[in-house]
Design a protein around this nucleic acid. Structure first.
Lengths: 356, 356
DNA sequence: TTGAAAGCGCTACCAT
DNA sequence: ATGGTAGCGCTTTCAA
């Protein structure tokens, strides 16, 4: 047919139109798949496009339509299995509905998150899914929500924010675990979280900026209080931001003479580290220490003993968030929804009665 | 000052220019940070922009400059720890160099990958990082490379492709493991991979479309052959595409009367499943079966026994790919590079001499 | 230093 | 059914 097709980047509708011997408008109609064209012309344009190796410019398309077919996602850390699985849920829905995903890691840093949202908005994403690092200053979220681009909060988000949110019933899960521990005679129960406070000490749930974790700690403290356990705030450890930090915190905690007899790990990365420290210190699970971790990570089922976990519907969280966003994009403008997905406790063998 | 700022989406340079009492061109110069402007005018424009809450439209900017500040990434499955870690390396470099990342999952499907690349190109990404599902038909890769947008292949890519590539020394790693096994007296050594063939049976390395895996199997077979082991092709199992598939394959394999005494798992998801099946069948590692897995996943260090792995510099793979891409974007047009990162065998306790 | 005007490639509206 | 044309919001000559 033709010799070497020209560099694709420069072929425009105008070129195709010229080659097909029709107007730019007509060529655009068939290339863009809108309006009405006769079969004859359609074939001619299609042929011309192919022979020129025409590649549409989505940027130009977005410019005029005002829609980019893109959704922006801001997560704490894509390396964390929690987020990578949620991301899978998001991207699956995106693909099915014809959207493309821009991903930005905030590193759980509020400033980075703000700039990420600004960048995404500047790139004219059609909507946003954000897993906010902090909820104390949520002005950028409110602003984003008001920018006209739909915003859905993932896994976090406080009740005070009038924004679509998809979370798990973290509080409920934490309450269940705590009750179980207490029923088994545990009194020294520790909670470990990556969330940090300015002075790395915990005083009250309001110190915690991450909604999902705050709710869990509230549930934990509530149940403890109702059971007559006092000053359980002292057993909440914050700042397990990296495995190294967790290692240090867990080591100090478990070497203490008044060490806990039960531990709740706020995510699987923390749970893994606690497990390792136990080994290192020669503590036997569950005889010496009972352990429950949030997130049903793969490793939890192959350890000896396998560890009891809170299974969160992580993929479903991402999926639901994306579906909700797409609905908004399709014009659903009902008031802000709050989707709460059920968690489930997977009993394995890391929980036992408190040592005497 | 002003009353409620207008909906940000509609504020353009023209609006700012009008408010600041300068021409559109001048306003654009300060807003875009190019050209020269007097301090006085700069201040006026900046003030006007702030009071109107001006948000630049990157789409329009990209239209005229031809650069979008975006790189497209196509991976097999972001849920896989391997890819999520590599992705972390990529996004970190991207952020540092002012780029934004569009992520598409191919699901290891060649057609999906093609359409992903097309989409990305249509969105005018500045460059691409792809982890190709198959290498047999790499026309779309060649075409992408010729489109003028730099392309870097991640973890995979054959020698015949004249495209920038970042991989690990998989072959070397596989050779080492195999030699070790043979030295320990193993003769029935199985290799399990997710890569599949049309009839789900393995005959020769050329059946394998994924470069990294093909290289490993080549290394495996080579060492076997030199050691005088014959028909080791029969011990290569393909099609462990999901945990369920792996479960089935591993179960059949390990229940067989001529079951292997050593297994090499081609990734950590497969390794985990093999570990589970061993448990279920009551096989003791390493007494009954030696196990080595590729990818130093978190779970491998907490099992009993902990499992020996090939540690690949996964984060570094992503990082190197992104750095290489950014160099290209900055004009480096030397000929295609092939970066090979070193792997390391992490000795743990899942390898022993062959059972008698 | 500043301004006017011409595009970037496409869609969308209004005629014909 | 088809063509002409006016933008989208920005950058980038070219003059002044």
């Amino acid at each position: 047919m033709d010799q070497s097709p020209p560099r694709s980047s420069s072929v425009t509708v105008a070129d195709v139109a010229r080659k097909a011997g029709v107007s730019k408008a007509t060529a655009a109609r068939v290339l863009g798949g809108y309006g009405t064209v006769s079969d004859h012309v359609r074939d001619a344009v299609t042929a011309a496009a192919r022979s020129l190796n025409y590649q549409p410019n989505e940027l130009a398309r977005s410019m005029t339509t005002g829609r980019s077919g893109t959704i922006g996602v801001v997560v704490g850390d894509i390396e964390n299995p929690f987020f990578s699985l949620a991301m899978r849920g998001i991207t699956d829905v995106a693909r099915q509905t014809g959207f493309t995903v821009i991903l930005i890691n905030s590193g759980e840093d509020a400033d980075a998150e703000k700039s990420a949202i600004r960048t995404l908005l500047a790139k004219r994403v059609d909507g946003l899914i954000v897993s906010p690092a902090k909820e104390s200053d949520a002005d950028h979220l409110r602003e984003a929500a008001r920018s006209g681009r739909p915003l859905v909060l993932l896994d976090r988000g406080s009740e005070t924010l009038d924004i679509d949110t998809v979370i798990a019933d973290d509080r409920h899960a934490a309450e269940n675990i705590t009750r179980r521990f207490i029923a088994l005679g545990h009194r020294r129960i520790a909670y470990l979280t990556a969330c940090d406070t300015p002075d790395h000490r915990f005083r009250a749930p309001t110190d915690i900026n991450t909604g999902s974790v705050r709710r869990r700690i509230e549930g934990f403290l509530d149940v403890c209080q109702k059971a007559g356990l006092e000053r359980m705030e002292d057993w909440v450890h914050v700042g397990a931001v990296t495995p190294e930090h967790t290692y240090r915190i867990a080591t100090v905690m478990l070497k203490s003479s008044r060490r806990p007899t039960a531990v709740i790990a706020s995510d699987s990365v923390i749970g893994l580290e606690v497990f390792k420290v136990c080994r290192e210190l020669g503590l036997t699970i569950p005889t010496d220490l009972s352990l429950v971790s949030f997130h049903d990570a793969d490793w939890t089922s192959v350890t000896t003993p396998p560890v009891t976990v809170v299974r969160q519907p992580v993929y479903g969280l991402g999926e639901a968030a994306a579906k909700l966003l797409v609905e908004r994009l399709n014009g659903n403008s009902a008031e802000a929804t709050r989707v709460v997905l059920k968690t489930e406790i997977v009993e394995r063998a890391s929980v036992a009665t408190a040592p005497a």
